[in-house]
């Protein structure tokens, strides 16, 4: 083990969609496994990732370059990138739900952990999870709807932690 002062990672998680829920939890859990001190500040839509039940969906309409592939069927079928124009994707009812289901399926098939699993690993490995008080007030979030063991604080709380960090990311 490194006897030196541990490296520190400070992350701001500002997005609440399924695709953007991955980077903060994935990096935080890995950094903790690498003996780093990790803090994640959840602000704006990122706050929803602290909900007891994560209901994050992927929003294809905001990701025009997102490859749309089938997670099931023959290999040839799965390799096709379906050319679905944004104008259609934005207007088909249930498209977001379908894209979310496909993404979850693809991730599971490739052996990628779910967001819930990664978050559990973060909690177990002592990652500091901080909910932004200001956005909680603005959007009407309550501490009781979040998982246990989180901190609540504002910009200064995050910056105090981030000031001594070696890596700082805004996601």
């Amino acid at each position: 083990m490194n006897e030196k002062k541990p490296k520190r990672l400070a992350i701001i998680a500002s997005k609440g969609t399924l695709d953007w829920a991955y980077p903060p939890f994935l990096l935080a859990s890995t950094a903790a496994a690498m003996d780093m001190e990790v803090g994640v500040f959840f602000t704006f839509y990122g706050l929803t990732l602290l909900n007891k039940k994560i209901e994050a969906k992927v929003a294809p309409q905001t990701n025009p370059a997102m490859p749309m592939k089938l997670p099931i069927g023959t290999k040839e079928l799965q390799n096709i990138e379906w050319p679905i124009p944004n104008i259609l994707a934005n207007n088909i009812p249930g498209y977001e739900t379908m894209a979310t289901a496909f993404m979850k399926k693809s991730f599971a098939k490739k052996g990628v952990a779910s967001i819930d699993e990664l978050r559990d690993i973060c909690v177990e490995s002592g990652v500091k999870l901080i909910a932004c008080q200001m956005t909680m007030d603005v959007f009407g979030f309550k501490t009781s709807q979040f998982i246990d063991g989180i901190d609540v604080g504002g910009a200064a709380t995050f910056l105090e932690f981030a000031a001594d960090s070696d890596i700082s990311l805004f996601i």
Binding site: L26, T30, M34, V112, A113, I121, S125
Partner: peptide
């Protein structure tokens, strides 16, 4: 086997 990033690292650490 069958696990993808970052699970092998996380499980190894554990």
């Amino acid at each position: 086997r069958g696990l993808n990033c970052p699970l092998p690292v996380v499980k190894t650490k554990k």
